[in-house]
Design a protein around this nucleic acid. Structure first.
Lengths: 241, 241
DNA sequence: CGCTGCGTTGAGACTACTCAATATCCGTGG
DNA sequence: CCACGGATATTGAGTAGTCTCAACGCAGCG
């Protein structure tokens, strides 16, 4: 049972029925495990299914001709990594496993059936793709209008909040962030060297410590204020959709 | 009849039935005109309807406490400016009329009815919100991985392509882009001063001329190559959804 | 035990920003 | 019709944030 996914859905709309949950879960293929670094969805491909990240970390990214790479989303357990490939058809970017991942496919035919039989669930899936878009908006604001320090702080706040939703983080407890500085730089849009300096600045201010794939937020309020983080955009309110 | 919208839909899926088109149009309220500069949707509001931009230009943006502003989308005739407010409920950004605009509301109850009665149309509306997200992805890549020159060139390619879809631009013909350099800078994530210098560079290379709200692309192929523009992300293929 | 990938630190370069002066366009009122 | 004011665009000069290049340390692993 994909508990993280269900939890994520119910946080957004607790009125989702047991039948809807079953309908969604029934569409999932048995999970398979892929190694870190595996390309789960190729750029320019036309997948016939979408992919649920049951467990692990994955990233969506665009790679330019010259090798410059920009991460578009960091996905955690319970996220669909390419739900948008159902309406869109052609992938304009790729998806890669950041850690070893357990993933489960859901055929587009099953998604189509959901849109035809269960409008409530369909609206909730639609919402999930739009929350990804809302996160992307904040990343754009971070890239253009926030300093590297504020931007990085904002990303830590975002990840912490998303992990709390699914129970993989708790206030004042360290949580997983299994990225290299290279990978964090690809997400923030800065070079690995500058990631190192920025993380160092956050550590020196006693806001965050990050090492060995673990993040410890030392002062949540100060970090939130620095980043001007407001979680509204994550649609964490529970209401019928 | 909102011809631009219908055209935009049919480019994505020509199998959309007459009944579906009628169902959508029937949900629209009579259009009203708003002046340039009007805030059409407030940040943090919970609209009970979405808004079709029947005619004109509008922008979606986030404004930070200190007044720094980032545009998230530039909308043209036939675009829904806040279709995402139907699943999302709470606006995490605002929408403003860039020019005088004719806009038509569609109640969320009507959208809900569409999701329940016409899954085909609903998938197409879902697609529209995802194309906005795909555009946003390119903007993020532009902001982080492209130079100001490449980024600006890419935006001109994007706007030209989108206007061609709805018949408001043709190859080798000038088209409308009624923005100030300030507004273009808010979209690109650079300062108005740097917009001026960048536009000047494009003009000196004889790629683009922009003035008086009109854009003339002098050398499409060169501009496309500079920007590495590939329109795949706009989902312009006609296929059943 | 050495290789390799990752992180840190330093020095200099470059892109875009800030501040400021001047020029241009446009609507308005005399 | 012209004069004016305000917003917009251009240009210059100095600055700041981030990048590039490079050296070095360290840990993991064959």
């Amino acid at each position: 049972v994909p508990a993280y996914l269900i939890r994520k859905l119910l946080v957004r709309d607790s009125t989702l029925s047991q039948e809807s949950q079953k309908l969604l879960v029934a569409g999932l293929q048995p999970p398979v495990t892929v190694k870190a670094g595996t390309v789960i969805v190729e750029q320019a491909s036309r997948p016939g299914h979408s992919t649920l990240l049951v467990n692990g970390w994955a990233s969506r990214y665009i790679e330019l001709d010259d090798g410059r790479r920009q991460t578009l989303a960091l996905h955690v357990s319970g996220d669909f990594v390419d739900l948008h490939s159902f309406p869109i058809k052609v992938m304009d970017h790729a998806v890669e496993a950041v850690t070893e991942c357990s993933i489960a496919a859901i055929d587009h035919s099953a998604l189509r059936a959901i849109t035809e039989r269960d409008a409530h669930l369909a609206r909730l899936l639609w919402l999930l793709t739009l929350v990804d878009a809302a996160i992307l908006r904040q990343w754009l604001v971070g890239a253009t209008r926030r300093s590297a320090l504020e931007h990085t702080a904002h990303l830590f706040c975002e990840i912490a909040t998303r992990l709390r939703v699914i129970g993989l983080a708790s206030p004042d407890q360290p949580f997983e962030l299994p990225l290299s500085q290279q990978q964090l730089g690809e997400a923030l849009g800065i070079t690995p060297v500058h990631v190192s300096r920025t993380i160092s600045a956050l550590r020196n201010r006693n806001l965050v410590r990050w090492g060995g794939g673990q993040v410890q937020i030392m002062d949540w309020n100060a970090l939130r204020d620095l980043a001007r983080f407001d979680p509204t955009y994550l649609s964490l309110t529970d209401e019928p959709r």
